[in-house]
């Protein structure tokens, strides 16, 4: 034979050094994914908490937006304050849309799916409340038919 025959005893011994890691190697290899999973769980929990906190904030904003519609016949100063609230809501919605884009890839991987879906509903409700405020103070007051119908009802 041209090639010398391998010594199975030596090979077996060296194989064991690979197939059976030392205690410290084994500990390290096992702990890394476990720590990673632990960290992931903590961070996903934090993400869920953040989403819930945002939803609570949005609910409060919607409540304020509904309440301002009860300001009847607002004067110039009141209109300026309403305008400020409208602009702040628009800015806030833009920020939340950025948050949605950032979180979406994680949701597609299956993280915080339920919370994210609920959050999208809240964002939609805030957008709806903003539209309503704009209707009440900017567009419906210019709708002649609308106020004529209301006058008609008062006279019934």
């Amino acid at each position: 034979m041209v090639v010398s025959e391998p010594n199975i005893k030596n090979l077996s011994k060296s194989f064991l050094t690979y197939s059976i890691p030392t205690r410290s190697e084994k500990k390290k290899e096992e702990s890394i994914p476990q720590e990673l999973l632990k960290l992931l769980k903590v961070k996903v929990g934090e993400l869920k908490d953040t989403i819930e906190m945002k939803e609570e904030r949005i609910e409060k904003m919607i409540s304020v937006l509904e309440k301002i519609t009860w300001v009847t016949n607002p004067d110039a100063e009141e209109m300026q304050l309403i305008e400020g609230i409208v602009e702040d809501t628009k800015t806030y919605l833009n920020q939340e849309m950025k948050f949605v884009s950032t979180v979406k890839p994680l949701v597609l991987k299956g993280f915080a799916k339920k919370e994210f879906r609920s959050f999208l509903g809240s964002v939609d409700d805030l957008r709806e409340a903003l539209q309503d405020v704009q209707s009440v103070f900017y567009t419906l007051p210019n709708n002649k038919d609308f106020y004529e119908s209301l006058k008609d009802l008062e006279d019934l």
Partner: peptide, 17 residues
């Protein structure tokens, strides 16, 4: 809810969530 006729008289037209 949302008062839709904020520039009106007495009777409210409301949208309730």
């Amino acid at each position: 809810g949302t008062l839709l006729n904020s520039r009106s008289e007495v009777n409210p037209y409301i949208k309730k969530r």
